[in-house]
């Protein structure tokens, strides 16, 4: 099969549907026309830019340059994890815990996938590395953000219970065990749900894209399965790492609960 290239006219036709929607909103006083148009315009600009950037990036063969790009992706994802916390860790930990966990999980999983599973040569070929890493980071980011937020919020709210356990002679690991388990579960629920619903409820975006670009559906399904497995492993490993480091940081060398290492609810 051949990939059918979209002409500017095709795109304009699709865009006219959005214009129609805006017109409808204006006539019926729904009040969303401005937001719809701005959002549509933003998506045009952002996607064109990223198309250009990827075009440029895929032409690169320098490992250092591509490595740098992946680190930028990691940094942005780490920032996003931090921004989603109600109680952030103070100091470098706020950025560090999420970023380190994503580095450990996403990078090791992607390395494994590219060298052993897909077998790309060289393994850092950007057409494979960048989109796969993007998908992995996007998902592990959500999982880690949920896990960490759960951990710090429950510790903040459960101070009395944690300290009551410490006072009876329990170790810090014992005193925070339930909260840890709960946080791990919370971080994994989204990806477990999307694995369970894959294909029945939603055709995942990657698979849809591959089919549209001409891949046989079965090939697309196999790729999608691999991606789901990688994302699950990455999210699980990343959440576990973040929860371990994060919960350790909540206690000091005398196993005291140190909520002063978190920011308050309003930052």
């Amino acid at each position: 099969m051949e990939l059918i290239s979209l002409s500017p006219l095709d795109l304009a036709l699709a865009a006219s549907l959005v214009l129609l929607l805006a017109l409808l909103s204006w006539r019926l006083h729904l009040g969303v026309e401005q937001r719809v148009l701005i959002a549509a315009l933003r998506s045009v600009i952002q996607l064109s830019l990223i198309g250009l950037v990827l075009n440029f990036l895929f032409a690169q063969t320098s490992f250092a340059f591509i490595g740098l790009w992946t680190l930028i992706m990691l940094g942005v994802a780490g920032w996003e994890v931090m921004a989603r916390q109600k109680h952030r860790y103070r100091g470098a930990w706020g950025f560090g815990i999420g970023t380190l966990s994503m580095f450990l999980s996403s990078f090791s999983v992607i390395l494994l996938a590219l060298t052993l599973i897909i077998g790309v040569e060289p393994w850092w070929q950007p057409q494979y590395l960048i989109p796969l890493l993007g998908m992995l980071l996007g998902n592990t980011m959500s999982g880690i953000a949920i896990s960490l937020d759960n951990l710090s919020r429950q510790a903040w709210e459960g101070r009395g219970r944690i300290e009551a356990r410490l006072l009876l002679g329990q170790s810090w690991e014992c005193a925070i065990r339930d909260i840890r388990r709960d946080s791990m579960r919370a971080g994994l629920i989204p990806i477990v749900n999307s694995m369970a619903a894959a294909g029945l409820v939603s055709l995942p975006g990657m698979m849809t894209g591959q089919i549209l670009s001409g891949s046989p559906p079965m090939e697309a399904a196999k790729y999608q399965m691999m991606i789901l497995f990688l994302i699950t492993a990455g999210t699980g490993l990343g959440s576990a790492a973040a929860i371990w480091v994060g919960s350790r940081r909540l206690f000091d060398h005398r196993e005291r609960l140190r909520l002063d290492r978190l920011t308050g609810p309003g930052h």
Binding site: R161, E163, A164, R165, L166, L167, L168, G169, D178, E255
Partner: peptide, 20 residues
């Protein structure tokens, strides 16, 4: 002493009782 062992030995009863 490890902190948990010290805490077990000195037995503090806080003003508010928490249960987990």
């Amino acid at each position: 002493l490890p902190a948990p062992e010290w805490r077990r030995r000195v037995g503090l009863l806080p003003a508010e009782a928490f249960w987990w």
